[in-house]
Each structure stands twice: as structure tokens, then as C-alpha cells.
């Protein structure tokens, strides 16, 4: 179903950058993803919407190879990655920012920022990062987890902008943050889109998603059940409200 929707779209410019087909994932014995399908073209910002527990986080983790077992197909820039390890997937050019942000307590801010190795040219320079996130420079020597929630989120995103990864998987960067910080994060996502990054963004807040994305996939019960172009969002409100229960 998801695949046929992808094909129904107006002709894409060339092959998709990321093509996920029939993705299944398990945590131990629990079968969580049941054939997830989605596509992202180079330069797009695409969101993954859905209620709590729909399987959005698991989808990102499965793309990175971080679920115990997975099956199906994950093609990135034409390469099949379903059998690859997380570090090999990262080195192809995909970077992941987890929902819990994953700031390391035993590393200071600079060490956190510099931790992910550069895997390709084209990432932001340290100067560019500090221009985008001035707080990180001021707090360079602080312990990573001493930052505020918003600063930790900025740090978690900043550190994957340096690496030269071309596709960013961001898991609910707006979660639990004050509206003014959410706005900053929105501005930052539009800025990195400008710079040519491709983003798969997990969100529960579609009002926020609407301000940054080109398209939206909707997940339910471990499957992608719908896809909405950002321009059609207003016309699709009733449908979305039903999916998201808001």
C-alpha cells in the first residue's frame, strides 16, 4: 500500500535517496514493524507522523540497523543496507539523532560535539556550527548533560551536521521543549535543508511538522498507512486528526 502511494506521486527527480520497502523489525520476540515502506528524495524534509507507540522510533532505529532483528529492504543511494551493521550504515552517509538525545555524561560539550567521526566531506565546519548554535561555544567545557534540554537537543543535532552525512534521521527534536526553542529548531531545520541536507523527521506535533516539511508519512501499528504532501495538509486535516487522535 505504502509503495503504491509512493509510485502515485508526481514523477520524482531520479531515484529516491532512501527507499525503504517491506521493513520488518523485532525487539526480542515482539514483532514491531510490519512492512514499513517509504521513500525520500535528495533534499527533501519528510516527516513521520503517528501516535505514541505507532513505531516511528523503531522505524528510524531499524533504518540504522539498531533493532535486534530486521528484514525487508533499506536502499540508500542505490545500495542495499539491510545486512549492514550500524557503523557501516553510518559510513554510507546516514546520521541518527535519537529521541532521548544521547548526550554523554562522561564527555564535555566539545567532546560530545566532536565524537561522531567525519565520514565524508561536505559537513558543516566548527565555525559554521558555532554560528548556528552559539550556546555550544559558550558552554564548551561543561559536562554534556549539564546543558538545558534545548541546548542538549541543539548539541545532539549539531554533532551530526559535522560528519558529512547527507541524510539525517531526527527523532522528535521538538519533544518536551518550550515553544521558543521549538521555533529555533524549526528555523534550524529549514536552514539545513537550504544547505542541501535531506531529513527524515519523526514528529507527533504536526503543526510543527507543517512548518518544516515537504511531505508527511503517517504510521499506525508498525506500518505506513498514508502520505500527505505538505500543500495538501489543510485539505487533509480531518483524516490526520483521525490518525493522530488530536
Amino acid at each position: 500500500m505504502a509503495e503504491s502511494m509512493a509510485l502515485d506521486r508526481p514523477a520524482a527527480t531520479g531515484a529516491p535517496m532512501l527507499a525503504v520497502q517491506g521493513l520488518e523489525a523485532w525487539y526480542g520476540e515482539s514483532h514491531i514493524l510490519h512492512g514499513v515502506g517509504l521513500e525520500i528524495r535528495q533534499g527533501e524534509v519528510v516527516t513521520l507522523l503517528g501516535r505514541n507507540g505507532a513505531g516511528k522510533t523503531t522505524t528510524l532505529r531499524a533504518i540504522m540497523g539498531l533493532t535486534g532483528r530486521r528484514a525487508g529492504s533499506v536502499r540508500f543511494e542505490g545500495r542495499e543496507l539491510i545486512a549492514a551493521r550500524p557503523d557501516q550504515i553510518a559510513r554510507q552517509g546516514i546520521a541518527y539523532c535519537p529521541e532521548e538525545r544521547g548526550i554523554f555524561a562522561s564527555l564535555d560539550v566539545t567532546e560530545n560535539l566532536m565524537l561522531p567521526p567525519v565520514i565524508a566531506p561536505g559537513g558543516l565546519s566548527l565555525d559554521e556550527i558555532y554560528t548556528l548554535f552559539p550556546n555550544l561555544k559558550e558552554r564548551a567545557r561543561s559536562q554534556g548533560t549539564k546543558l538545558s534540554g534545548g541546548e542538549q537537543q541543539m548539541l545532539a543535532i549539531a554533532r551530526i551536521l559535522r560528519t558529512g552525512a547527507r541524510l539525517l534521521l531526527l527523532d522528535e527534536p521538538s519533544e518536551g521543549l518550550a515553544p521558543v526553542i521549538v521555533q529555533q529548531i524549526g528555523a534550524m531545520i529549514r536552514e539545513i535543508k537550504q544547505r542541501g541536507f535531506t531529513v527524515l523527521l519523526v514528529e507527533q506535533n504536526f503543526r510543527f511538522a507543517q512548518t518544516v516539511a515537504d511531505r508527511h508519512y503517517v504510521m499506525e501499528h508498525g506500518q505506513v498507512v498514508d502520505m500527505v504532501e505538505n500543500g495538501e495538509l489543510a485539505a487533509s486535516m480531518d483524516r490526520l486528526h483521525e490518525y493522530l487522535g488530536v
Binding site: G65, D87, A95, Y96, L107, M114, L115, P116, I160, T163
Partner: peptide, 25 residues
């Protein structure tokens, strides 16, 4: 050192460190 920061980070969250492209095994 840089190597040490990998070690400290992997002690905290090995999976995430591996997802950054480091061969944690």
C-alpha cells in the same frame, strides 16, 4: 584523548556510538 572519548562514550551508550560509524565490536 579522542580514543578515550570513544571509550567513555561507548561505555555509556555503545549502540549510539556504533550508529555514529564507529566499529564498537
Amino acid at each position: 584523548t579522542k580514543i578515550g572519548s570513544y571509550l567513555r562514550a561507548a561505555t555509556e551508550r555503545p549502540q549510539l556510538v556504533q550508529a555514529f560509524g564507529i566499529n564498537v565490536p
